[in-house]
Write a protein that binds this DNA or RNA. Structure first.
Length: 957
RNA sequence: GCCGGGUUGAUGGAAGGGUAGACAUGAUCGCCUCAAAAGCGAUUGUCCGAAAGGACGUGCGGGUUCGAAUCCCGCACCCGGCACCA
């Protein structure tokens, strides 16, 4: 294939381990494993039930984040995690566990849909082709998956249950007192019985059906509401924030994007904010990921405070109630519902010119500002964050602590979606408020004594003084004083006062928002929801699931004049009148009726929110998963009080969204009694990325990395010098290396070893094709230690190995066991290499006992060569289910160890001593050593530190 | 801006506070070969030295310790995440 390929050359010896040999044995054993069902994990019952002896073992459920089947296929960066879980799963299988390891496909997604829009080809066809391609690419790596359990999220048998779970969520509410989800029927019963007062008063039975539906909508965990979204008329679809560019246009097509309120489905994930936060503590996840989730959930403690205005009040949320005396104005979000109410007809006497925005009346000013704010994209708002804008509403509220009037503004630096959408502004101690106050010439009152020497005269300040560790000043008012208190005590004191006066209370706020759950796309799960003539949403009964995607002629949403913001999306499904308008008997006693189907589809995240559960019982047509099977694989156990998957490996890019959504769904299903674990993934591990060098020519364009020549540390493409940088691997940067290419040159075992040996699993590192050969050589030497290269005969002998070999063997066993258990594959391989090199160096035939142990050590890492050698060594059963070797402690310690003797921490001598030597004996020997005597040069000894048997450190006087 | 993580030979990386650089790539030399490749063997942190040996070395500056790549403080740079969240 390439001239640099050492394996392409004719082998010098007829039975050497070459790429051709690797290809032959790998294909042969892959076929055998498939036919044999070697990796089938037995369930305790059902269609996948199996050997009770295996079921009785402790279980290990080892999972990868499943892939999106891209048409582009895999490059060598993709399978890193799959290989790692495979090695770990194989190791667990050899240490007495029933191991569930499989892989499915997250197959709804935009690329297939876009391809369908462009070509008219059904996305299912392209997706299935991509799945098949990916399956054959992965098969070649020898991954030990239980293929009976694989599925794709686009399978109707699978998304039936995605829809079923949606309905479970739709038909439940969050009981704040019990802190758990309950069926919505229980809430209705409470309203009916009067146990729970009906919101808005009155009795439940007297309400209209529509009124009841509205009330229940306020409780349901899945609900439709008008939410501001990124609406792009030119594309005819709403867009995710990531799909909108910095200047507020669509990334694709460069059309304008508007904020529009559209009726959308949401998931009430905010109900679970505290549980999602608290339960993180129990999980064995990287701290960095837990932290990202904590930040995303964003819990802040503070207080709600009511500011009286015109006989009513505006409620604000603040984390700094201790600075209430410094609140000199208020700000509402432009969309705040109370804005109209507190916008009078005329400007009050003496209104500052800067506050009016040049408008004749408050109404005009507010309307103009609101229009301007609505036309801005989020990104624009952020870009202009430094320049504070806003306008006076014309009203004053009253600061409850001192009775001072405070002007009420609207400004887009206050967001409707957080807290109460209203703030008290304390310009002296908040940088945003400070900037706004300076722009609008508002008073700045210092209430926290600066500790940086700037003094309390705020006229001289250039920025706000922000501190949580300073004294409150200037804060005495109606029956309460905070002067002299620290921030923490002041918060407690003022909160107490607010509560006693009935003008506020301590409260907790979360940054987490509800999850926007609908998309205007074709290629997603249809909602199992229909609307009656009154527009009331009804669940489809379980018998009507799955609600399959209809066949359509046109996969694209309707597009509009790109600049016409007053349009709304028309989904691909909505044009299909025959499908949308149906007469159904929902089995609710109302008989057949006319309904309209929901025409949005679910977001890509839906299918990945629960897929771990379906691996357990993939063919169950009665239930999502059989409870006994679910408890067996996912149930709580010792050291794992929440239960869950034993190891989940994937990229850190899913730190929040996927992992948070999946945790949320698990908690709902747990609350409703469908599963036994409220957490899906007990242990999470983030693998690093395989990066690759990118070579760019003088114009900055990437050139094919495979054709680069290196001379004296400089790089050339077709004779022209090019620049090298580190980037992602992929087609667009012309640096993709496919697993097939490496398999062809060296074999899958070499590829597996190389990926695992590159470095620690969680660290990103550059791919270096040149270095792959190192692992190939290891396998060649391993092969040569068992098989004669010339004759092909097995060369092992039945004699006892020598002492040094036994020690090398048992140290390797001990180290490899620990390293594999700790996912330290790179050092495990180093230890195997050391042992193998020891045998190579020793020369002569290897004793059977050592050869067999060595083969077992490499089995998880390089299963094909291990299976082949195992059989050649005369075994008739697969190596996959053998016991992993156990080290004999007697041989793990060396006969003699090297003891270093330091003088003042510097190594001066090395001694060979017995590992059992006593501190006293070692000290005596060390002090007698001539090099030590020379180094001490007659100086007296102040102190001797002895750590037998490895170290003596002498401190001279 | 805030929050995380990192910085060790030419390169990827090893080192429970105790021999810095395991293992691998690359490079140099040698064996084998008509030759090359493959394979096998040796050397390979830097500096001084013919050698023996010595000095210096884990981004930079300080500290704790008998002893620091490892712990603490400050700084620089790199990589991620969040971003007007009151």
């Amino acid at each position: 294939m390439s001239e640099t390929n050492p394996a392409a050359a004719e082998p010098a010896a007829p039975h050497r381990y070459t790429a051709a040999v690797a290809a032959e044995i790998e294909a042969r054993w892959q076929d055998f494993w498939d036919a044999d069902g070697t990796y089938a994990a037995p369930n305790p019952k059902g269609d996948l039930a199996g050997d009770p002896e295996v079921v009785a073992r402790p279980k290990k459920f080892i999972m990868d984040m499943f892939p999106y089947p891209s048409g582009a296929g895999l490059h060598v960066g993709h399978p890193l995690g799959y290989i790692a879980t495979d090695v770990y799963a194989r190791f667990q299988r050899m240490t007495g566990h029933n191991v569930l390891h499989t892989l499915g496909f997250d197959a709804f997604g935009l690329p297939a849909e876009q391809h369908a829009v462009q070509t008219g080809e059904h996305p299912r066809i392209t997706t299935e082709a991509a799945i098949n391609n990916m399956k054959s690419q992965l098969r070649r790596l020898g991954l030990g998956h239980d293929k009976r359990r694989s599925f794709a999220t686009i399978d109707p048998d699978y998304y039936k249950w995605t829809q079923w779970i949606f309905l479970q969520i739709f038909n439940s509410w969050y009981d704040d007192e019990a802190k758990q989800a309950r069926p919505i029927s229980e809430l209705i019963a409470r309203f009916e019985s009067g146990e729970r007062p009906v919101p808005g008063g009155g009795s439940w039975s007297e309400l209209s059906e529509a009124a009841r539906a509205d009330i229940l909508g306020e409780y349901r965990l899945a609900y439709a509401s008008d939410a501001p979204v990124n609406w792009c008329p030119g594309l005819g679809t709403v867009l995710a924030n990531e799909e909108v560019t910095a200047d507020g246009r669509s990334e694709r097509g460069n059309f304008p994007v508007f904020k529009a309120k559209l009726r959308q489905w949401n998931m009430r994930i905010t109900a679970y904010a505290d549980r999602l936060l608290d339960d993180l503590n129990e999980l064995d996840w990287p701290e960095a990921i837990k932290l990202q989730q904590r930040n995303w959930i964003g819990r802040s403690e503070g207080a709600r405070v009511d500011f009286p205005i015109d006989g009513e009040h505006i409620t604000v949320f603040t984390t700094r109630p201790d600075t209430l005396f410094g609140a000199t104005y208020m700000v509402l979000a432009p969309e705040h519902p109370l804005v109209e109410k507190f916008t009078p007809a005329v400007w009050p006497e003496g209104t500052h010119d800067a506050w009016t925005g040049g408008h004749a009346t408050p109404g005009e000013a507010v309307a103009a500002y609101r229009a301007q704010a609505a036309s801005k994209s989020d990104v624009e708002r952020q870009a202009e964050a430094k320049d504070k804008t806003g306008v006076f509403t014309g009203s004053y509220a009253t600061n409850p602590v001192n009775g001072e009037p405070v002007p009420v503004f609207i400004a887009d630096y206050v967001l409707m979606g957080y807290g109460t959408g209203a703030i008290m502004a304390v310009p002296a101690h908040d940088s945003r408020d400070f900037a706004f106050a300076r722009a609008f010439e508002l008073p700045v009152v210092c209430v926290v004594e600066p500790t940086d020497g700037r003094g309390t005269d705020t006229a001289t300040w250039e920025d706000a003084f922000v501190s949580y560790d300073a004294k409150i000043v200037n804060s005495t008012g109606k029956g309460v004083s905070l002067d002299g208190l620290g921030v923490v005590e002041a918060k407690a004191r003022i909160t107490e006062w607010l509560e006693s006066e009935g003008v506020g209370e301590g409260t907790v706020n979360f940054r987490l928002r509800d999850w926007l759950f609908s998309r205007q796309r074709y290629w997603g799960e249809p909602f199992p929801i229909v609307y009656d003539e009154d527009g009331i949403a009804h669940s489809l009964p379980e018998s009507m699931l799955p609600l399959e995607l209809p066949e359509v002629e046109d996969y694209s949403p309707r597009t509009f004049d790109p600049d016409d913001a007053d349009t709304s999306p028309e989904t691909p499904l909505s044009r299909n009148e025959d499908w949308v308008n149906v007469t159904l008997d929902l089995g609710d006693g109302r008989g057949p009726r006319a309904y309209r189907r929901e025409t949005n589809t679910m977001p890509n995240w839906a299918g990945s929110c629960w897929y771990e559960l379906r691996y357990l019982d993939p063919h169950n047509s009665e239930k999502l998963v059989d409870p006994e099977i679910e408890r067996y694989w996912m149930g709580p156990r010792e050291g794992q009080p929440h239960g869950g998957v034993d190891l989940y490996v994937g990229g850190a890019e899913h730190a929040v969204l996927h992992l948070l959504y999946a945790r949320f769904w698990s908690k709902v299903l747990f609350d409703l009694g469908h599963i036994s674990s409220p957490e899906p993934f007990h242990k999470l591990f983030n693998q690093g990325m395989i990066q690759a060098f990118v070579y760019r020519d003088s114009r900055g364009f990437p050139v094919p990395a495979a054709e680069i020549e290196e001379r004296d540390g400089k790089f050339f493409f077709q004779g022209e010098p090019v620049k090298r940088e580190l980037g992602k691997m992929g087609k667009s940067l012309k640096n993709a290396v496919t697993p097939e290419a490496i398999c062809e040159e060296y074999g899958a075992d070499t590829l597996r070893l190389y990926e695992m040996a590159m470095g620690p699993l969680d660290v990103s590192r550059p791919w270096d094709t040149r270095a792959v050969v190192g692992q190939y050589r290891l396998l060649q030497r391993l092969w040569r230690n068992v098989v004669d290269e010339t004759t092909g005969e097995v060369t092992v002998v039945d004699t006892e190995p020598d002492e040094a070999t036994l020690r090398a063997l048992h140290k390797a066993i001990d180290g490899v066991r620990h390293d594999l258990e700790g996912l330290r594959f790179n050092t495990a391989i180093a230890k195997v290499t050391e042992l193998n090199n020891h045998l190579t160096k020793a020369g002569g035939p290897v004793s059977r006992q050592v050869a067999e142990a060595l083969v077992l050590l490499v089995t998880p890492l390089a299963p094909h060569i291990a299976e082949e050698l195992w059989r050649r060594l005369g075994h008739t059963d697969s190596v996959v289910h053998q016991d992993f070797p156990v080290a004999d402690p007697a041989y793990v310690v060396d006969e003699t160890v090297t003891c270093v003797v330091q003088v003042k921490g510097k190594v001066k001598a090395r001694l060979e001593v017995s590992p059992a030597i006593s501190d006293e004996e070692l000290e005596k020997v060390a002090l007698a050593d001539e090099k030590v005597v020379a180094a001490l040069d007659g100086a007296g000894i102040r102190k001797v530190i002895v750590r037998a048997p490895k170290l003596v450190n002498i401190v001279p006087a």
